[in-house]
Write a protein that binds this DNA or RNA. Structure first.
Length: 463
RNA sequence: GCCCCUAUCGUCUAGCGGCUAGGACAGGAGAUUCUCAUUCUUCAAACCGGGGUUCGAUUCCCCGUGGGGGCACCA
């Protein structure tokens, strides 16, 4: 069996979005699954819309998601290869050569300053009511595509088409095919939106006297019902990879979710390590119908991953997050203290970007107090009495561990004929300003006696 | 308008001629925990319609309908 060579060929004309990432992922997975080669090729022929910033975003995003490329532009540890250059803007001479070949063999001709690819067959004229003009058509045999995902697809290609514009630039269909031939691409895995183009491409392969690669057209990602109809576009909420990076999602969670959009391992497994996905992924397992994007399921996947991160990794993720927050320097000033708190938060939060709000009161005395929670807590029992009792008891408590604090609090409650719950809510409100957080005993321990007392007193004063 | 693809809970999906149509997310209700979150239990929720083929269709075929994509000197 010949070597599998697949490519991902984005154009740097906009932000890198979910759909592109998924196409890249399926190519990458197939390459890794088969032990083949994953090529990154930049389709930057559209000079007006290209930008270096977008190009860099492609590199950064792929790198962040863990999709390393064996051949392509050099970026960090990725890239290189013998079939370059890997940017179409630098391959002009190759396109000229292929154009000449077609001209020489009579499969291309010039008209209106452009170069057209010539179909073989009897010609006739017909009025096209979509374009509202008369066009010349060619009676050709239908193109048969043996798609690895769709099965047999038959389509008529019945009009000559432009391969070089009158400004001298080659068009997408032409460069795409030429590059795939030159780079010895064996499998073309791309979005279903290209299925209709494939008949053109097949004719071009034939024109060059080359066997076409295997095609595999994957389903598209559609908007979720709340977002409306149609395929996901760059303007839709949650469509950009950059957004998840900024929200500090775990790239492996995003990749896992994306893999499940249009593919499944054949059983009920959903969360699975990338190595397992690589092992199980194959083209016949890819669905034929489009999938709607579900941000909630992605968020859940992210949480599931977050919960099981080893402590060191979680702290490092937290550090990346706080490095970008205005309060970051203060928060991370004391490494041990920071780590302690982050590990208290880890099992409780759903995403890293909640960390700031969730742990704020640990790092400043000037934290906000939730008025709604206050109202609720202060309405029940005699919270002010509990605060007073706590204030009196805390100085003598053993703050050396959660367990000793718990024992002390429970014995205080017992001595008053009350339960732990009678103190918990109001104490929590005093030290954290809210009703959600790590266990009260942990908060006490981390904060220390002095701050706990100070906050208990403060709440007593204002209430 | 023409061409191509597609169709199971709200969403992602399993099913590959005979099943109480399974799982997951989201939603409802309980339980556990010092709060919250997690976790656990539980409930509700689907085979687009019509024809065939067959002893028997969610499953195979055809026609509708719905959804998606394509029809450029864009990529």
């Amino acid at each position: 069996m010949s070597q599998v060579r697949v490519r991902f060929a984005p154009s740097p004309t906009g932000f890198f979005h979910i759909g592109s990432a998924r196409t890249a992922l399926f190519n990458w997975l197939y390459a890794r699954h088969t032990g083949g080669t994953f090529i990154l090729r930049i389709e930057d022929t559209d000079q007006a819309r290209n930008s270096e910033a977008f190009l860099n975003l492609i590199y950064e995003s792929l790198d962040w998601l863990g999709m390393d490329w064996d051949e392509g532009p050099v970026f960090r540890k990725n890239g290189g290869g013998d079939y370059g250059p890997y940017r179409q803007s630098q391959r002009g001479d190759i396109y000229q050569r292929y154009k000449q070949q077609l001209l020489d063999s009579g499969r291309a001709y010039e008209k209106d300053g452009a170069i057209w690819f010539k179909l073989l067959g009897e010609r006739y004229k017909v009025f096209d009511d979509h374009r509202k003009k008369e066009v010349e058509k060619v009676k050709t045999a239908p193109v048969v595509i043996d798609d690895r995902i769709r099965g047999r697809v038959e389509r008529q290609e019945d009009e000559d088409f432009v391969i070089f514009r009158s400004d001298g630039n080659p068009v997408f269909h032409f460069v795409n095919v030429v590059d795939d031939i030159e780079m010895k691409v064996s499998h073309i895995i791309r979005g279903e939106d290209h299925l209709s183009n494939t008949s053109k491409h097949v004719r071009l392969y034939e024109g060059f006297g080359v066997t076409a690669p295997v095609f595999a057209h994957i389903p598209l990602i559609l908007k979720s019902p709340e977002m409306g109809q149609g395929k996901m576009s760059k303007r839709d909420k949650g469509a950009l990879i950059e957004e998840y990076q900024q929200r500090h999602f775990l790239p492996e969670a995003l990749v896992n979710y994306l893999a499940l959009l249009g593919w499944n391992p054949g059983d009920d497994r959903e969360k699975m390590p990338i190595a397992d996905i690589v092992k199980l992924f194959d083209l016949p397992g890819v669905n034929q119908s489009n999938a709607k994007f579900d941000g909630k399921k992605l968020a859940n996947m992210n949480m599931v991953y977050l919960l099981e991160q080893p402590a060191d990794r979680f702290v490092s993720l937290a550090r990346d997050y706080f490095a970008k927050q205005p309060t970051g320097a203060t928060v991370m000033a004391n490494e041990a203290y920071f780590r302690d708190i982050m590990l208290l938060a880890q099992p409780k939060i759903k995403s890293v970007d909640e960390l700031g709000a969730y742990t704020g009161y640990f790092f400043t005395d000037d934290f906000s107090i939730d008025p709604k929670v206050t109202e609720k807590v202060m309405a029940k029992g005699d919270p002010k009495a509990r605060l007073t009792e706590l204030g009196a008891a805390v100085p003598a408590m053993d703050f050396s561990s959660d367990a000793t604090i718990e024992t002390a609090l429970k014995s205080l409650a017992e001595s008053k004929g009350l339960g732990f719950g009678d103190y918990q809510a109001v104490a929590r409100l005093a030290v954290s300003g809210t009703n959600a957080g790590p266990s009260l005993t942990s908060i006490f321990r981390v904060l220390g006696k002095e701050k706990v007392l100070q906050r208990l007193r403060k709440l007593l004063e204002v209430s």
